[in-house]
């Protein structure tokens, strides 16, 4: 009969749960990012950022988060490969003109790859200097001055544009991913599918636009020092 994780619904279940877990992470991340906009020279934001670097979180939660990303990405790759195989090598000469199918739903792997490319640069820009090489600026009171690191990074227009593209890619990914996660675990019917879709669409654009707005706001708040 096959194993649970080998079955198509089992694999989709893993995608759904890991996806919803990453949604929770996004909410925490966005909440902390919003503190960047508190007009106190970054004091509140730094306090929150240094809290997230405490050993309990660094060694307790971070591996779980990393696992969430890795599982989501690996299963996405497996599912996409299997689906391409199931579609078959022969393509339709007349294409696919089925109406009313959301573009994002057919391009989740491409959108996921966009988010992944963003994630790689994002980790290199912030996570590495903050938590691995510790080359980020220090605060007099101890801990890193994450605010200055962020503010400096976002004085550069290409970086701001890159962050906005990453955020919008994430938004599109979520417009399908959010309701789809509930459909996959079976928490859906004709009424709830509409509700999840509305909630998911609102959530996706709030998250995507808020991250974008913060990046743009930081550019204008910043010292306009340009790229360095």
């Amino acid at each position: 009969m096959g194993t649970f994780f080998g079955s198509s619904i089992g694999k989709k279940f893993v995608m759904s749960i890991s996806g919803l877990f990453l949604v929770v992470f996004l909410i925490v991340h966005l909440a902390i990012n919003l503190l960047l906009l508190v007009p106190d020279g970054g004091e509140t934001f730094n306090a929150a950022a240094n809290f997230m670097a405490l050993p309990a979180i660094k060694f307790g939660l971070q591996p779980v988060l990393a696992l969430g990303f890795i599982v989501h990405i690996i299963y996405a790759a497996i599912i996409t490969l299997q689906n391409n195989k199931a579609r078959g090598s022969a393509k339709y000469a007349s294409g696919n003109k089925t109406k009313d199918v959301m573009w994002a739903s057919k391009n989740m792997f491409v959108l996921g790859a966009t988010v992944f490319a963003f994630l790689a640069v994002h980790i290199y820009q912030f996570f590495v200097p903050l938590q691995i090489t510790h080359s980020a600026p220090e605060l007099a009171s101890g801990g890193h001055d994450t605010y200055t690191l962020v503010a400096n990074a976002l004085t550069c227009i290409p970086t701001v544009v890159f962050y906005v593209i990453g955020s919008l890619g994430l938004a599109l990914h979520l417009t399908h991913g959010f309701w789809s996660a509930f459909q996959t675990v079976g928490a859906s019917n004709n009424i709830w599918r509409k509700r999840w879709t509305v909630i998911g669409t609102v959530f996706a654009w709030v998250v995507g636009l808020a991250f974008s707005a913060i990046a743009i706001a930081m550019y204008f708040i910043g010292s306009c020092g340009g790229c360095n």
Partner: peptide, 9 residues
């Protein structure tokens, strides 16, 4: 057969 990704097509 492939894995459903809820496109709704």
């Amino acid at each position: 057969f492939g894995n459903c990704t809820n496109t709704g097509a």
